[in-house]
Design a protein around this nucleic acid. Structure first.
Lengths: 218, 218
DNA sequence: GGTCTTGCCTAACGAACGTTAGTTAGTTAG
DNA sequence: CTAACTAACTAACGTTCGTTAGGCAAGACC
């Protein structure tokens, strides 16, 4: 019980910090504010962590952990087509963004606002996750499944950019992540341009919006 | 001369604030820091602006202005194909991000960290810029140039997401924006998947990277 | 039963925060 | 020549920042 409650306070410190980071950036997070939301005094945070930067770094690391766990879930399955395989990883990434706490969202939106020292410590973990995408795309490229002429790195950056942008407008309360993942995958995989003789994709016509747009990014 | 110098200080306050916002979020911008970089004392900022929020809002507005000006430059031209037309607007958007000061970059990265009051005041301008993309895509859709079944809004969000993500990795010192715009446009327009009988796109094979990746986003 | 450890507390430190008041030097207008 | 205005200044307000020192109650261990 005692140990459980201790772990609980520590976890709630991270939860609250991640949420505030996601909405206000690292500098917008105050220790007194965090403590108040956790239900504790500000000085008590230093019983669990050595400094604010340590908390921030822990949030970033957990954000990566969530993404890697989601990735592993998709990688364990097998798929009839490469598009389905990529789609599963897109769905997993979106799951990390919206279905497993604020950590991944906090990482992606607040990383640039963190002190250089914290960023430097976290970069290797970011690179490792990024490398998973690069490896997947390289494998598809070598199998002749990708259009030639574009470096893998740019394909990865475009795909991740399109996915991460959903943080600015997708409302997980109202939206359907499966459908969103399918749409993004199809847009990147097949493109948005009509082709001679092309027909509408199978399945019901998509609804006007997949998730309410709260404040869409230009 | 006197008037020019006054305008200059005001403009430099915005320049410096935009740069700090882009790198540290709104809460990470201190008035004393801004004043120091401008070469003035903190209290003097209040001769030019009524409050910090007023400066922040001015930066956001200018970020939109830069985007709209860039858009107008592309809209004034005519194009042989729809892809070229979209590509010109992509190039214009990237120009706003990298070639016209830190305002657009500051807007896109720091908007979510701003006080709700400031955000509320700026949203209409964001919507107006967004509506230009919506109108362009709707026109293409009505002309049968877009694949059916995906709402225009999602196409816009994916495209803008891919473009705005470049802020996290593209280095304008080393990169070639024309080539980057072409690649992003082609990826979204035609997709990244190889197609039966498809061939590599015309022109020289793209170099391994278009801009050095400083800290690529997962 | 006494000692140690854990988990929180109160109190306070110096620094930085946004902002205001009041002043001064230089320019412009009548 | 004087009055008004401009654009900066110094000094300070009260608040919040991250952080540290030291105390106190409760359970664990010998």
């Amino acid at each position: 019980m005692a140990v459980t409650e201790t772990e609980d306070v520590r976890r709630r410190i991270l939860d609250v910090t991640a949420e505030l980071m996601r909405d206000h950036g690292v500098a917008g997070v105050g220790q007194r504010r965090v403590a108040e939301l956790v239900g504790v005094k500000a000085a008590s945070l230093y019983h669990h962590f050595g400094s604010k930067n340590e908390i921030v770094e822990a949030v970033f690391r957990q954000g990566i952990d969530v993404m890697e766990t989601a990735w592993d879930g998709a990688a364990a399955r097998s798929f009839p087509t490469s598009q389905a395989r990529v789609g599963a990883h897109v769905r997993a990434h979106l799951s990390a963004l919206f279905e497993n706490g604020p950590y991944t969202a906090a990482h992606l939106t607040a990383f640039r606002t963190a002190p250089a020292e914290v960023r430097r410590a976290v970069v290797p973990m970011r690179d490792a996750y990024e490398a998973r995408w690069t490896a997947l795309l390289a494998e598809l490229g070598e199998a002749g499944e990708l259009v030639a002429g574009t470096p893998i790195g740019l394909t990865r950056l475009t795909l991740l950019g399109a996915m991460n942008a959903t943080l600015d407008w997708f409302d997980p309360e109202r939206g359907q992540l499966d459908q969103l993942a399918d749409t993004i995958t199809r847009q990147i995989w097949q493109g948005v341009a009509a082709r001679p003789g092309s027909i509408a994709p199978p399945g019901p016509v998509a609804r006007p919006t997949i998730g309410a747009v709260e404040a869409a990014a230009p």
